[in-house]
Amino acid sequence: MQYADLHSHTTASDGTQPPADNVKLAAAAGLSAVAITDHDTVAGLEEAIKAGREYGIKVVPGVEISTVYAGQDIHVLGYFIDWKDETFLSRLAELRRVRDRRNEMIIDKLQELGLDVTMDDVIASLQASKKAEETVGRPHIADALVRKGYVANMAEAFDRYLAKGAAAYVNPPRIEPATAVKWIIDAGGTPVLAHPGLYDQDDVIPKLKQAGLAGLEAYHSDHTPEQEVHYAALAESLGLTITAGSDFHGERGGVVFHAPLGARRIDAAVCDRLHEQRGGRL
């Protein structure tokens, strides 16, 4: 059987590996396919697709869109999108502007807490300068906190300051997940709800199914075995495609963030199913 990891991040958002490296790692992990799903950007896709031809790996063009539902961050994955569609690119650019504002709000709260951290410190912690179409996220801020000595590691940065309910957490207005589903369908893609076990918002899933949601990421590195069983069964009951993803972000401070690429994988035939479901063709 051939396998796919349908959730990975690169330096185009908050991963630490260039897109080509993710593809190389997928080959080393024995995968036949990997999805590049950076946050609110498709800036890493061209490099990844080129690398896919080099390594004989199918690269699924994807994105992970940030939304809010009932005060909770909800992420919607889009697969096989037309990543050169001008309308879609414009919508992603607007999401990145919201993300930039969120980052500024986090920095303001950290400074209110007496931590001498600036956006310049965050930028200095990046392994490479960011292009306009790439994103800066909370892991980059966590890196700055570690470098400044305020926390020992990424986990402490999130637990104390950046995770939901932590001291510097903020959640500015964002689009709803149903809007992200529509945008992905408009761009000819297939929408899948990312890591539903992190939300405690199962009520949103049938609503998103009505909006055109095509799949559910039942198998994820942060899901418990019980959650994986639960969401696989829920997906089947709703007629949603079951997907799997490591949510690989690379290594920070000697620790792989979320899990190694390929740690969660699924039959690569699922890629064909997602391809068939493009643009709402269920």
Rank of each mutant, 00 (worst) to 15 (best):
E112H: 13
Y150E: 12
T41D: 02
K109Q: 07
I74M: 06
V181W: 04
G279V: 00
V256Q: 07
P177F: 06
D5K: 10
A269L: 14
D120Q: 03
H223K: 12
E47R: 10
K84N: 14
G245V: 08
V229L: 13
I242D: 07
I123G: 10
I123C: 04
P61W: 13
K24S: 14
E47D: 13
S66E: 03
D203Q: 04
H223Q: 02
E46K: 14
P191C: 09
I184V: 03
R138Q: 11
R138I: 10
A142D: 02
R147K: 15
D222V: 10
Q17A: 15
R160C: 01
E64N: 05
M154D: 00
A29F: 14
P173M: 06
A26G: 14
S66M: 06
R147N: 14
I57P: 13
G165D: 15
L240T: 09
A263Q: 14
I81M: 07
I205K: 07
F248N: 01
K130E: 01
G280R: 01
W183D: 08
L92W: 11
L216N: 02
H258E: 14
A70Q: 15
A232D: 14
A211W: 04
R138Y: 00
A157S: 12
L193I: 12
T87P: 00
T241D: 11
P19F: 03
N22I: 11
A48N: 07
G78Y: 02
G212D: 10
I74L: 08
A29P: 05
P172E: 10
G253P: 03
Q201T: 09
L261S: 08
A35R: 04
L216T: 08
V117E: 01
Y3I: 09
G250P: 06
L240H: 07
K24Y: 13
V63Q: 06
A178R: 11
D100V: 00
R281P: 09
V146L: 01
V34G: 04
D267I: 07
K164H: 12
A244E: 02
E156F: 00
V170R: 07
V270S: 01
